[in-house]
Design a protein around this nucleic acid. Sequence first.
DNA 1: TCATAAATTGTAAATTATTTACAATTGCAA
DNA 2: TTGCAATTGTAAATAATTTACAATTTATGA
Lengths: 107, 107
Amino acid sequence: MSESKTNSDLSFDFDFLDKLVVGIGEVSQITGIPPRQIRYWEEKGIITSLTEEEGKNRRYNYENIKKMLLIKELLDEGYTLDASAEKVKNRMKMIEETLNKLQNKKD
Amino acid sequence: MSESKTNSDLSFDFDFLDKLVVGIGEVSQITGIPPRQIRYWEEKGIITSLTEEEGKNRRYNYENIKKMLLIKELLDEGYTLDASAEKVKNRMKMIEETLNKLQNKKD
DNA sequence: TCATAAATTGTAAATTATTTACAATTGCAA
DNA sequence: TTGCAATTGTAAATAATTTACAATTTATGA
């Protein structure tokens, strides 16, 4: 009785989002960014993955994916990769805060 | 200029959900259901995947994952697999309808 | 134009993850 | 105990990803 999981409708699933961690192939399909490019961005430190150990497959969460989509948009607008990454930082903070508020609505 | 993608906040991402298609490993991590069990359910026709061709890796969308979670809950409550599947059908219809409403809010 | 750096892309060999198929095991009810 | 439902185990083959080294394309300033 300690936790309620009525889950009556999709109201919406922030615990689902929290568990959502996917591989590079899925991210590529979702975002339209080729795997090779995703690896390159990560190699440059523009994005990070949740990968446990070297050699194991890369893992990305919702925030990672969101970030890639934002960077992609800015690149299309003509920003450089570094400039895009810098600009996206602020947006990411807002997204993080929003997610936190929605998840730990403890008050 | 034909399509607007301001994407100002997460308001919330039903187009993201629409593109969200993941492999069996991810589903297993998300749901806590072992891959072997997921394959078994699929083999029995309880669930379906979006897999393109035989031999290729299985692909699941949000509805598939949601369905598995619901079935898992009912199994825990003591229902048989078939009974769980039957019961879940109704819930799935509602979820589908809700998703459709939220996605094609064309009116 | 030329040089230089940024950004992306190509690919081979090794590794990881998944598939299928056949089989064994477990739990439960008659 | 028997029989069925449900799950689990696993080997061999295949699919997908990793790393590493390299080539190519694109933008930008001298």
